[in-house]
C-alpha cells in the first residue's frame, strides 16, 4: 500500500438546521458553518489508521470547491493527511462531474485505494464513489463498516439492508464508508500548527479540461410538508385505547 487518496467534500455542518430561501432558489448558506462531510472524515480516519498500522502509505486528501474549501483540507492535514489537492471552482459540481474530476486526480496520483464517504449530507446523493469506481474501471465496496487490507486485496464488510455482507476486491479499489467503520480522532492544536506547513496544491477545474455542466437543473427548492403536532395521552392505558380505536394495533 503506497498511496491512499481520500475525497473530501465541504458541506454545511451536521448541526446546522438548514432553511430554505423564501424565493425557492435554494437553501440559506450565508454565514452558515461549513465542515468536512462527516462520512468523509471517517474515510480519512480509516486511511490514517491503515497508514499507522505500518503500511506507511502516503495519504492524499483531495477536494473540489470554492477557495474556502482549503479550510476543510487544512482540517484533513491537521488530522494527519500528508498533503492535499484542491480542484478550485465556483460552480456547483454534481456527482458525475465530481467522479470525472476525481478520476483525473486518480490517474495522476495512482493510489492503491480511494476512500470517501458513502454520501454527502448536503445533496444526500450517494453516487460519487460508485461513479468514480465505474469510470476508473475498478471495484467498488460501498457502505463499509469493516475494512481489512492484505496482499493486493481488500476484504470489506458492508452494511446492507439485510444485515452485513462481506466482499473481496482486488486493489486498486474505491471504498465508500459508513458510520460505524471508526470514530474519527480529534484534532489537537499542535497538529493544526503543523498542518499549516504541509503542502496544499490548488489547481483550477479548467486545467483538468473537465466542463462540469449542469446535469440536472434545480427548478425550485421548498421546505418539506410539516407534520402537525398531535395529542398527548396521560398513561399507557389511554395510549393503547387510542391506537385500538384508530385500528392500528
Amino acid at each position: 500500500m503506497n498511496k491512499i487518496m481520500v475525497c473530501i467534500k465541504r458541506v454545511v455542518d451536521y448541526n446546522v438546521r438548514v432553511r430554505v430561501k423564501p424565493d425557492g432558489s435554494g437553501v440559506m448558506l450565508d454565514g452558515v458553518k461549513m465542515s468536512v462531510n462527516p462520512f468523509d472524515e471517517i474515510a480519512l480516519e480509516e486511511a490514517l489508521r491503515i497508514k499507522e498500522r505500518g503500511s506507511n502509505a502516503e495519504v492524499v486528501a483531495v477536494s473540489i470547491g470554492v477557495a474556502d474549501t482549503q479550510q476543510q483540507l487544512r482540517t484533513a492535514l491537521a488530522m494527519g493527511a500528508d498533503r492535499a489537492v484542491l480542484v478550485q471552482t465556483d460552480q456547483p459540481v454534481e456527482p458525475l462531474s465530481a467522479a470525472q474530476i476525481f478520476l483525473a486526480l486518480a490517474k495522476k496520483e495512482n493510489p492503491d485505494l480511494i476512500l470517501l464517504g458513502k454520501q454527502a449530507i448536503d445533496d444526500d446523493a450517494n453516487q460519487t464513489g460508485q461513479m468514480l469506481a465505474a469510470l476508473w474501471e475498478r471495484p467498488q465496496a460501498t457502505y463499509a463498516s469493516k475494512l481489512a487490507i492484505e496482499a493486493g486485496k481488500a476484504t470489506v464488510t458492508r452494511e446492507v439492508d439485510a444485515g452485513l455482507e462481506t466482499i473481496e476486491v482486488d486493489l486498486p479499489a474505491v471504498v465508500t464508508v459508513d458510520l460505524r467503520l471508526n470514530e474519527p480522532r480529534y484534532v489537537k492544536l499542535p497538529d493544526i500548527m503543523k498542518a499549516k506547513k504541509k503542502p496544499l496544491d490548488v489547481i483550477t477545474l479548467d486545467s483538468l479540461g473537465i466542463a462540469a455542466p449542469v446535469w440536472l437543473k434545480a427548478v425550485k427548492t421548498e421546505p418539506p410538508a410539516q407534520r402537525q403536532k398531535g395529542i398527548m395521552v396521560k398513561d399507557t392505558a389511554e395510549l393503547v385505547d387510542v391506537l385500538k380505536k384508530k385500528g392500528l394495533i
Binding site: 430554505v20 437553501v27 440536472l216 437543473k217 427548478v219 425550485k220 427548492t221 418539506p224
Partner: peptide
C-alpha cells in the same frame, strides 16, 4: 427529491 436530510425538497429537471 429530498436534500439536507429532508429539510428541503428540490424539484429537478433532466435533459
Amino acid at each position: 427529491r429530498p436534500i439536507y436530510a429532508g429539510n428541503a425538497i428540490v424539484t429537478v429537471e433532466a435533459d
